[in-house]
Amino acid sequence: MHIVIAGASGLIGTSMSAAFRDAGHSVVALVRRPPAGAGEVRWDPAAGVLDPSALAGADAVVNLSGAGIGDRPWTRKRVEELFSSRLGPTRTLVQAMAQMDTPPATFISQSASGYYGDAGNTVLREDAPAGSSTLAQICVEWEQAALAAPAGVRVVLPRTGVVFSRSGGALGKLLPLLRLGLGGPFGNGHQFWPWVTLPDVCAAFLFLLDSPVSGPVNVTAPEQADVNTIVAALARALHRPAMLRVPAPVLRTVMPGLGEELLLHSQRMEPAVLASAGFRWQHGSLEDAARWVVAKDGSA
C-alpha cells in the first residue's frame, strides 16, 4: 500500500511511519521544508498549497498534523494556533483530493479524546456527544474538515487518548518524577485518562488502513483507569512511592486552561469500534502497559 502522511515528524508520526514501512508499505511524508529525499514532498498547509500530484497513486492519506497541545501555555494566540495547525492542513488535504480524478480510497485524519470534554464517569463510546471545552471544539471542527473529503473516500477519525511512550509524550514530565519517588496524581485523581501505548496507536492505524471501518474510532486501551490507578501502576512498575499529589487549584493557577482540560478533565472512553472489528491490543491491561513504559530495552 502507498501511504502519504502529514505530521510525520512528531512522536506519533515518527513511530507510525516506521511501523508502516516495517509492515511493507511505502510512505511519503509531507514536509514544510525542502525535501530531503524521494520519500518527502513539500507543501504549505498554512497557505493551503499542496500539488494534488503529491497524492497521485496513494492508497491512503494519514493526517497527524497539529501543534502540540501541552507544549506551551494557552494564550489566546496559542489557542488560535491549536485550531489553525489542525484545520489548515486538513482542509488543504481535502482540497487536493477534491481536484483528483481518482482520490485515495482512505483518509485517516487524527482527532482526540478531547472531543468528549469533561464527561465524569460516563462510559464514552463513539456515539457519545461532543463536550463544550476548547479541546472539544477543536476536535469537532477538525473532524468536520476531514468529513468534507470527496464522495467515495472512506474517512476514519481516530479519537486518540493519552499516549504512553518511553520517551516524551504524555508521560514525558511525569515519569522522571516518579523515578525519583516525587510524582503523584493530579487533583483528586478520580478523573479517567483514556490511555493507550504508542505501539498500540501505530497498530490501530495499521489495522484501520485495511479495515472497512469509517467514522469516529476511539483509539484507547480496553481497560479504563482513573489517574490514581494509572500513577499507582507506574509507581509499582518503577518500585517507587507516588505520594505527592498536585492539588487541582495549583494546576489551574500554574497551567490555566491547559491544566484543567489536559490533566483534570475525565474521559472514560471505551474502544467499542476497534473491539467489535477484531483489533487486538499488545498492551491491553494497565499493568502490561506500565511494565512496557518503564522497561529499559527500547526508546520508542
Score class of each variant (00 low, 15 high):
D101P: 13
R86L: 04
L87P: 00
G7F: 01
S53L: 11
A54H: 05
P52C: 04
L93M: 06
I108G: 00
A60K: 07
P73G: 09
T75A: 05
G48I: 10
P104G: 12
A54C: 10
S15N: 14
G68P: 09
R21Q: 15
R21K: 15
A47T: 07
S84L: 05
L93V: 03
T102F: 01
P89E: 00
R78N: 15
I69W: 09
P52K: 02
G13T: 09
S65G: 13
Q95M: 04
F83P: 00
L87H: 00
P35N: 02
G57N: 12
V94S: 04
A46H: 15
A6Q: 03
L50Q: 02
S15K: 07
L30D: 00
Q99W: 05
V31K: 06
D59N: 12
A98I: 06
D22T: 14
P52M: 05
A105P: 09
R91H: 06
S84Q: 08
R42P: 11
A8E: 02
G37W: 03
A8Q: 07
V61Y: 03
E40Y: 12
T92L: 01
G114R: 00
G7V: 04
A119V: 08
S111L: 01
F83H: 11
Y116W: 14
T90P: 00
L55Q: 01
W43K: 01
G117M: 01
I12C: 08
G57M: 10
